[in-house]
Design a protein around this nucleic acid. Structure first.
Length: 678
RNA sequence: GGCGAGGUAGCUCAGUUGGUUAGAGCGCAUGAUUCAUAAUCAUGAGGUCUCGGGUUCAAUUCCCGAUCUCGCUACCA
């Protein structure tokens, strides 16, 4: 669109190598990126399409530990799996690399080193848990202990999975290292921080002023971050899985995964070509990042800041982030196995790569979250791909076979209507280009389908199967026009449906048709011999859809089953430890919502001992006016704690059901306030 | 709670720099047609543009408030 650029570098978000790829990833990132890249290539533009596996970070080390294998084995497995399924699905990367590659280690190290040597980082020490037996610092996830909120003894350092509370590792009672089982100690550790705050003026200018044309979801999200004010962010971690910090005395420290991952785009380009610098440093190169909305802050704020700090790189021209795709009304979830996995789809629907590409493009979450349903998948296949595109092509080819021995007939004279129809093609091309140039993929696809609709209408209007009885000469022209439409379809559909177009090109015996031919009414010359044709698409029957729905139903059932078991009991304690808890009955005298919170109620409780204030996270389940006067149980000798500026003295006892719903533990009959519960 | 995005036909989504009859595809109804995978083509029904205020000659479009959905973020003793 913007003519000042000579070439384009397109990146697609690096998939995280701890699981396979699903339709959400595809619809959000890889399908649009691939369409865009194929479009540019067809136009003869210079473009590289960069992607690879993101293989560092704590979740991969945890998965490795759980399975008793090395992190490298985990990423090897998923890297191969992801790479293969992308290739089978026709995502046409120039290179699909990985962040555990040697080139990436060198690139990321050098990048860090340059910023370090030019004093672009700030250094800070902080206290973190350290395992003296294993001799290493512990990520929050590697620490378990007793949750100070619910008493669950197996809470993690970042979150208690029993009560859902997010924690700091230092909050845990009796913290334990999951590596050695020993009690970790707090120890000072040094880390490097990227001072994003120093780049705020630059970012404000660059994003808010110079890139107002970014998609509204992207621009809005950036503005929100910038308005809140940016903070320095650590770019290193104490971990043994990752790229070592290339600084003396930084033993046991690696680059934080979000720092090394985007550099992976650069590394992959280096791996692809010695001439990589022109794709990253030439101001005449246009850099485009395709990502999902969860990645906006990294690609619009952090990575550009890194590039800016480094100094020799260009910045992204656009970051067309998509929203999320839901599945049958529910959020896609890897852990809940609520997903359509690409590798499973390719098995279940062999030869139907383009059907999924089509459906995901037609229903792409461009401006808001969208829903994928199998019924919609079936309907788009049967009533659009089969009935409109496949059908038109088949009608045209079958008629040509029947009447003209599969040779392109000559034009014996174009009517005004013929000319009108042919003149539509350049108009469709123009509309489609305007859409694709602005990353409106759904519109573009619809426009491309309009050409097939035009073809069907043309045949219906000219009725060659009737005219053939009286005027074969006229039918020559009609089928010539229909064949030119078919040839044009084979160009305009190529970015969207590459597998289909492969087949179609063979049928019409046409090789190497570039974008510049699109709109041309003489692509197929008279006398040109066509090949034998087959159907481009077949109907998808109810059984296949039913099978997929049952598969999902099984996932759902498995999730329910996993949720139901009552949590395992805790270890025995002595009566004495129980007796240390002073649990009393009390009456709620007053209740009000704590301002600016979603869950908190400020309660005034008559405990018999005194009247005190307790803050409780129950606002989602109770209306303040409905609970005044209610008698409850309260843990009265819990250490007071300040919450949102209010000192909370004690804890109200509640029972929580499977769904997380809370109910009060209330004496069966009203008893005096201050009665002991034992 | 703060911030961001969104709430438009049965379904999935466009759109309106405020202006007479608000669009597309699918689905549905009726008709035409049979070259084609019962596919196609034409016509039609279907919308208080989430709700309530305000600005205006005029609001679905601008402003304010409410409400619901999604995301980021705070919070949960």
């Amino acid at each position: 669109m913007n003519r000042k650029f000579k070439r384009t570098t397109v990146t697609a978000a690096l998939p995280y190598a701890n699981g396979p790829v699903h339709i959400g990833h595809l619809a959000g990132v890889y399908v649009p990126a691939d369409i865009y890249v194929r479009y540019l290539r067809l136009k003869g533009e210079e473009v590289v399409f960069i992607c690879g596996s993101d293989e560092h970070g704590v979740p991969i080390t945890i998965k490795a530990r759980q399975e008793g294998i090395s992190p490298q084995q985990v990423v090897d497995r998923y890297h191969e799996m992801i790479k293969k399924s992308f290739a089978d699905f026709g995502i046409s990367f120039s290179i699909y690399s990985r962040t555990s590659s040697k080139v990436h280690y060198e690139t990321a190290s050098a990048f860090f080193k340059k910023l370090y040597e030019e004093n672009k980082f700030i250094e800070k020490t902080s206290e973190q848990f350290f395992d003296t037996e294993a001799n290493q610092f512990l990520a929050d996830r590697y620490i378990t202990g007793t949750c100070p909120h619910c008493g669950n003894e197996r809470a993690y350092g970042d979150q208690c999975e029993s009560c859902g509370t997010s924690l700091n590792a230092t909050d845990l009672i009796n913290p334990k290292s999951t590596i050695s089982g020993s009690q970790p100690v707090l120890k000072e550790t040094l880390h490097w921080y990227l001072p994003l705050d120093q780049y705020q003026p630059f970012l404000n200018q660059w994003i808010l002023e110079e890139n107002k044309n970014w998609k509204s979801n992207v621009y809005g999200q950036c503005k929100s971050w910038l308005d809140q004010g940016l903070q320095p962010r650590a770019v290193s971690r104490d971990l043994d899985w990752g790229i070592p910090v290339p600084v003396d005395g930084a033993k046991g420290k690696v680059l934080y995964v979000w720092f090394d991952a985007p550099i992976g785009y650069i590394s992959a380009t280096r791996e692809l070509t010695p001439d990589w610098e022109k794709y990253w440093k030439d101001p005449e190169t246009r850099l485009i990042h395709f990502i999902g909305k969860d990645n906006i802050v990294f690609h619009c704020i952090i990575f550009p800041t890194m590039l800016k700090a480094e100094g020799s790189y260009i910045l992204p021209d656009n970051v067309p982030a998509n929203e999320f795709l839901n599945l049958e009304g529910d959020k896609i979830s890897t852990s809940r196995n609520w997903a359509v996995w690409l590798h499973e789809y390719l098995e279940d629907f062999k030869g139907k790569e383009d059907v999924l590409r089509y459906v995901l493009c037609a229903n792409m979450p461009e401006t808001k979250d969208n829903d994928f349903t199998w019924k919609d998948f079936q309907s788009r296949n049967n009533s659009e791909l089969v009935a409109i595109l496949g059908n038109f092509v088949n009608r045209t080819l079958v008629l040509t076979q029947k009447y003209f021995d599969n040779k392109v007939p000559e034009i014996t004279g174009l009517t005004a209507y013929d000319q009108e129809v042919l003149a539509e093609i350049p108009r469709i091309k123009e509309n489609l280009e305007a859409s694709l140039d602005n990353f409106r993929f759904r519109d573009a696809l619809k426009e491309a389908m309009n050409l097939a609709r035009l073809g069907n209408k043309y045949l219906a209007d000219t009725e060659p199967w009737i005219v053939i009885k009286s005027d074969k000469e006229r039918v020559k022209t009609i089928l010539n026009v229909a064949l030119q439409i078919t040839a044009n379809l084979s160009i305009i559909m190529e970015p969207f449906l590459p597998f289909t177009i492969d087949k179609l090109r063979k049928f019409i015996n046409l090789r190497d048709a570039g974008w510049n031919l699109l709109g041309n009414a003489e692509i197929l010359k008279p006398g040109h011999l066509l090949n034998k044709s087959e159907l481009l698409y077949e109907k998808i029957e109810d059984e296949a859809i039913e099978y997929q729905l049952q598969k999902l139903a099984r996932s759902k059932a498995a999730n329910e089953a996993a949720k139901s078991p009552v949590k395992p009991g805790k270890a025995n304690i002595s009566y004495d430890s129980f007796a240390t808890m002073d649990i009393r009955t009390g009456t709620i005298l007053a209740a009000e919502k704590v301002a600016k919170t979603k869950k908190l109620l400020k309660l005034t409780i008559d405990t018999g001992l005194d009247k005190r204030t307790v803050v409780s996270g129950i606002a989602e389940f109770f209306e303040p006016e409905n609970i005044v006067g209610k008698q409850v149980c309260i843990l009265a000798n819990l250490e007071p704690r300040e919450i949102k500026g209010i000192t909370s003295q004690g804890m109200i006892l509640l029972a929580e059901d499977k769904g997380g719903k809370l109910v009060f533990v209330t004496p069966e009959n009203n008893v005096g306030n201050g009665s002991e519960v034992k």
